[in-house]
Amino acid sequence: MEPRVLPVGIGEIRFSDEAGSVLVTYSLGSCIGLTAYDPVLRLGGMAHIVLPNGTAGGEGPGKYAHTSVPALVRGLLRMGAARERIVIKMAGGARILGLAGTPNGPGIGSQNQAAVLEAVGRLGLRVHSADCGGTFGRTMRLFLDSGVVEIVTATRGSWTI
């Protein structure tokens, strides 16, 4: 049977405890895909974080690192996850147009990475594995049955983290 695919849109957070389901966020560029997973209960969540910080204007908490990370962890705890078991993985934060005469200083991608790491650390948690940076886009999938996170690229193949 084909797994049920649950897309996570830009700036969204989504959870699942459904056996065989897959949370997926497509074509991350400078954005960060962040997953949190409880391997015992096999439930997890995924956030598609757009910017390091900002003020939400009537939208949900998913868009900004400083609101999205706590909301992702809080949501998982509400579903019954044990804090000490939560496995966090992140991907994205690339600079796709790195040669395009971009403004000086770090791009949004690396700012997003730093903001997510800081927000995770502030919760007393850590990122277990990451696949970030570079100049290419990534699609990120979290398989709820195994906790495996798959990264797929357009021109460099795919791998797991």
Partner: peptide
Amino acid sequence: PTAPVLVSDMAGAILQSTLYDLAPVGK
């Protein structure tokens, strides 16, 4: 326009990076 730069990648990743990395825009 600035001189064009060529990339081969996922359309969404290119467009999303364009919007957020180079010149953040509104809603």
